[in-house]
Simulated assay, not measured.
Amino acid sequence: MDNGKKTYYINVGSGEISQLSTASPWHFKIEASDDEIITLREYFDQVYSSDIQGFLRSHTPYIQYHYDRENDAIDDTNKQIYRMIYELGDEEAKNHIRTQGLISRIDEQE
């Protein structure tokens, strides 16, 4: 049965999404539709954009981390990324996210 989903391999650190498991190192295997991959790509792009803004802001040392909007944006987007990986991931991905306590931290924020 074709549900319109394909297998993708995700490297969270680099924001890489690939259909080839041998193309580069990956952390999670997911099954996702084209629309879900577009959403995940947008999340990775948001993290990258916020990271650049945070780098520029880091030259203003009097702002502490917990008062930094760019870091808040990265934290929020990372939660969305891990939630999406958890929902679309194989059992190994789900188990890793559970054992690292990422899902409970995500749930506590809502």
Rank of each mutant, 00 (worst) to 15 (best):
G4Y: 04
D107P: 11
E70F: 03
I85V: 13
W26L: 12
I97A: 07
N71M: 06
S33G: 00
I81W: 05
E70D: 11
I17G: 02
M1A: 15
I17W: 06
S49C: 12
H59M: 10
E70G: 00
E16L: 13
G4A: 06
K79Y: 05
G54V: 02
S33N: 04
G101Q: 10
G101C: 14
D35A: 15
R98G: 01
R105Q: 13
E36V: 06
E108C: 14
E92L: 03
F28N: 14
E110A: 11
M1W: 08
S18Q: 12
Y9C: 11
Y67H: 15
E91F: 11
E36M: 07
N71F: 08
T60Q: 04
I81E: 00
T22R: 09
S18G: 11
R69N: 06
G4P: 12
S104R: 14
P61Y: 00
I38R: 01
N95P: 06
A32E: 01
K29L: 12
Y8S: 00
M84E: 08
V47T: 13
L20C: 08
N3K: 02
A32P: 09
D35Y: 12
Q109Y: 09
G101V: 14
I81V: 11
N3A: 02
Y48P: 04
S58K: 06
R83A: 10
K6E: 06
Y82I: 10
T39C: 03
E92R: 07
Q109R: 09
D107G: 04
S21C: 07
E42N: 11
A23E: 08
G13K: 13
G54C: 06
A73I: 00
P61R: 00
E92M: 02
I85L: 15
S33T: 14
K79I: 08
E31C: 05
I37F: 07
K94G: 03
P61H: 01
N11R: 10
T60S: 09
S14E: 15
D76E: 14
A93T: 11
H27V: 07
T77L: 05
K6C: 00
L102F: 09
K94M: 06
N95W: 00
H96E: 08
G101R: 10
Q80P: 08
Q100L: 09
Q46H: 12
R98A: 02
K5L: 10
G101N: 12
K6L: 00
A32C: 04
I52H: 05
D35V: 14
L88I: 06
Y82K: 13
R105W: 03
A73M: 02
Q100D: 07
I103N: 15
Y67N: 15
I74R: 10
A32K: 02
D2L: 07
S104A: 13
R69W: 03
E110Q: 13
Y48N: 15
R57C: 07
D75Q: 09
L40W: 05
E70I: 01
I30C: 09
Y43M: 12
P25N: 14
F55R: 13
D72T: 10
Y43A: 10
I97T: 05
E87H: 09
Q53L: 08
I85H: 09
Q109G: 04
R57N: 12
S33L: 06
I97Q: 04
R105M: 13
G54E: 01
H66N: 05
A93K: 02
E42M: 08
D90M: 03
H66F: 02
G15P: 09
I106C: 12
D75M: 09
N71I: 10
F55G: 15
N78E: 04
I17N: 03
F44H: 12
D75Y: 04
E110D: 12
N3S: 01
